[in-house]
């Protein structure tokens, strides 16, 4: 059952613009993600989705506008453990990297541990739990590069979960993943959102899946031209005229 708490803002982007070498990539974007929401940010290639997510995560500074995470100004925000990030990695990380599935997931404990502290039994336990959530525990000793794209993506989700986040942000998670695995993947995200009560923000060009899976959709093409519930999306003629992509 949906359990969006409209009184609690997880992410607030207020009039965000971003220019790169004089070219405006994002123009005046305002959007809010509430606790428990499942938001799909959709747009075509080069629409500025990844730039937006990098701004929301503090990896890029907007040219203008402000970001608040969990009600706090992003420059003062310290509690990064609350945010689980799944980068666009399943298809473009070093497949020869010598790390086992368990070693990769343990990286996700960093934000809980901080500098100068080494990993403890508790970290290993959390990593195990996270791997069980994505049904990858039996692969813990395999090298990450030896897994299929879908399995790797699950491991990256486990890494995000290992830090006990309150929101999980995923950047194009289904790129390069086979169709049938994609369905399993969305089932997993639904589980995270409905059962683990995590707020989910997903960037994708896959509007079709989002219209079935997400609660809200934000359509981006350098600017935000639609942001509402999925039902409203189908009523909105503008969005239907410009189905991106």
């Amino acid at each position: 059952m949906p359990h969006v708490n409209h009184n609690e803002n997880i992410i607030e982007a207020d009039h965000i613009s971003f220019s790169y070498s004089g070219h405006e990539v994002l123009h005046d974007i305002t959007l809010t993600v509430h606790r428990g929401d499942y938001l799909g940010i959709v747009g075509g290639n080069g629409a500025g989705k990844t730039t937006l997510i990098k701004i929301l995560l503090g990896l890029l500074k907007p040219s203008s506008g402000t970001i608040k995470l969990f009600g706090q100004e992003i420059s003062r925000f310290k509690d990064w453990a609350k945010i689980g990030y799944v980068p666009q990695k399943a298809t473009n990380f070093d497949v020869n990297f010598p790390a086992t599935v368990e070693e990769v997931v343990l990286m996700g404990r960093y934000s809980r541990r901080g500098l100068f502290k080494s990993m403890t039994g508790e970290d290993r336990h959390k990593a195990k739990e996270a791997l069980e959530h994505v049904e990858m525990w039996q692969y813990r000793d395999r090298l990450i590069g030896d897994l299929s794209g879908g399995q790797q993506q699950r491991v990256f989700i486990a890494r995000a979960l290992a830090g006990n986040p309150e929101v999980v942000i995923l950047d194009e998670p289904t790129v390069g993943i086979e169709q049938e695995i994609k369905a399993e993947f969305y089932t997993l995200l639904r589980k995270l959102n409905r059962e683990l009560r995590l707020t989910v923000v997903l960037i994708t060009h896959d509007i079709e899946s989002m219209s079935k899976e997400a609660m809200h959709v934000a359509c981006i093409d350098h600017t935000l031209f639609f942001h509402n519930s999925v039902d409203e999306y189908f009523k909105d003629t503008h969005a239907v005229i410009h189905p991106h992509p």
Partner: peptide
């Protein structure tokens, strides 16, 4: 392994 995610993790 992943500089960007490390940065997001603080």
């Amino acid at each position: 392994f992943d500089e960007e995610s490390a940065q997001v993790a603080g």
